[in-house]
Write a protein that binds this DNA or RNA. Sequence first.
DNA 1: CGCTTTGCATGATGATCATCATCGTAAAAA
DNA 2: TTTTTACGATGATGATCATCATGCAAAGCG
Lengths: 191, 191
Amino acid sequence: MRYHSRHKAEVRQQIIRMASYRFRSEGMDAVGIANLMSDLGLTHGGFYSHFRDKEALVAAACRHGFDELQQRLAEVLAAVPPDERLATLVEHYLSPAHRDRPDDGCVAAALGGEMARRDQPSRQAFTAGVEAQLALLAHCQPQRGGCGGMTASVALALMVGALLLSRAVSDPELSLRFLEEAKRALMPPAD
Amino acid sequence: MRYHSRHKAEVRQQIIRMASYRFRSEGMDAVGIANLMSDLGLTHGGFYSHFRDKEALVAAACRHGFDELQQRLAEVLAAVPPDERLATLVEHYLSPAHRDRPDDGCVAAALGGEMARRDQPSRQAFTAGVEAQLALLAHCQPQRGGCGGMTASVALALMVGALLLSRAVSDPELSLRFLEEAKRALMPPAD
DNA sequence: CGCTTTGCATGATGATCATCATCGTAAAAA
DNA sequence: TTTTTACGATGATGATCATCATGCAAAGCG
């Protein structure tokens, strides 16, 4: 090998990382291979020695995005007493900061809509990520039943939907309303 | 004018109608002008005499999609006693049939993710549609408070999120779980 | 120090994209 | 019947797309 043996793997990782950001912020169709590679100081030629096609990159980027979030969240939640974990997670997920940084945020909310139209490999990677999110959510329910009596899948659907709508809507007030009211619905109702 | 005076308006309406279907089922970026026009037996040339640019079509298609749904729902709900309206709406929205026909379904669920990245005109049309949905939802809450104690914006976010995830996920069982559990959460809890 | 290996660059392919300028033609108006 | 008018067809523009075939140059191995 002409570079040290890790080099190819490192470049591959960089491609995936950059793709996972740009896909989330611009959409998967809007990011071209050549443009993406040039972000890393490379040209489009080498791409196909790393991935069979764009679909393979989408799947890898999807996995990477979920893994990264999962890991980051696990760290944050571990530092918080168990009965505050749900509140911490919800507060973070439904914050304006998360709304305004889709590139660094939840893959499900950023790419869920387009995922429904993709091929099997990508959708499988996406599904695995969603399942991991569900497990994490179920794991930090304060007591039996879950978030204000919701199951994990209901809580996830609500969070994803609220974040998605808060991003799509052009009225800042309505945008905030989606975040705030979802937050309230997810937090334990009593003081 | 060479055709009868309604002709141009009719063609315009057909373009919008077709666009609103194809945008929902294929995504707004994936549908090209030339391809869309050829669906109507026309060529790409005349498009720009109907719309300033593609963005204008997106906004119009968005309005059309919401209007159509709003009208169809209003008809269905009017034929149902007030205390069954919420259940009817939820049952319909979270049905596998709706999941499997995005082209004929909710604009918010199909295009919400991509809407966040579009220009102002489209997002304003989208926002107006969302507001109409919220009003309709608030209007068919069975009693004070709303769907199992949810506000309209929470109910909408949950429905949109559940439908979106049920479409994106590749596991049929998980897909159904999103629909069923969201349904349960939205229906009045007591028998 | 030369050989082999291979990651990446170069460039081509053919397709599609949004947009616009031009023009024929068919229908309405006269 | 003749004139007018504008819808929509044709074709060009320049950009970008995913994908692949070829070739260079550098790094590890001998």
